[in-house]
């Protein structure tokens, strides 16, 4: 342990696909599920491996990257500043919709509030000016309207269909 102010404590996390992650304690403690694991098992050995059966390696790596950066921002007093916005913007820039959905599922399971807020906001921004078809594809929703029924609803709310972006 870091009782003598020596080595930082490392937390071991094991994903559903069997990968082992070594994460700095402050970053791992951002995950509410990991935090409560150690709260409930106070005498857990330092090399205890926390199993994460609902998270696979790819989203976990992404989440660690995000939380690590945000832990540092807080430590440097940069929270809420432009630096953070810039990081967040870069972070999601290359992420596909599928990747975002995987991230949000994993962040939900790990229970990381800050990241969930950010991800829901991000997804809302992506969907904001998109067509009905885009939203259906995003959430995997099947269209159960007949063409006539759909046309009637579209007509009723015509004003809401002005200024929609291309998919």
């Amino acid at each position: 342990m870091s009782k003598l102010g020596q080595a930082k404590r490392i937390i071991f996390l094991k994903t559903a696909d069997g990968q082992l992650f070594e994460v700095d304690e402050p970053v791992a403690m951002e995950f509410e599920i990991v935090k409560s694991f150690f709260d409930e098992n106070e005498d857990a050995a330092d090399d205890t491996v926390v199993p994460l059966p609902n998270v696979s390696a790819e989203p976990l790596a992404g989440i660690i990257e995000f939380c690590k950066a945000h832990v540092e921002f807080r430590a440097n007093g940069a929270a809420g500043k432009d630096e953070v916005k810039k990081f967040n913007a870069e972070y999601i820039k290359e992420k596909s919709n599928e990747q975002l959905k995987e991230l949000i599922l994993a962040a939900n399971y790990l229970n990381i509030k800050e990241m969930l807020d950010f991800l829901t906001e991000t997804i809302a921004n992506r969907l904001k000016n998109k067509s009905v078809e885009y939203v259906r594809a995003f959430f995997g929703i099947e269209n159960d309207f007949t063409p006539q029924e759909e046309e009637a609803v579209r007509k009723e709310y015509e004003w809401a269909f002005e200024g929609v972006d291309e998919d």
Partner: peptide, 8 residues
């Protein structure tokens, strides 16, 4: 409102 057209 637009999402009313997504599904019933």
């Amino acid at each position: 409102i637009r999402l009313k057209c997504v599904c019933k």
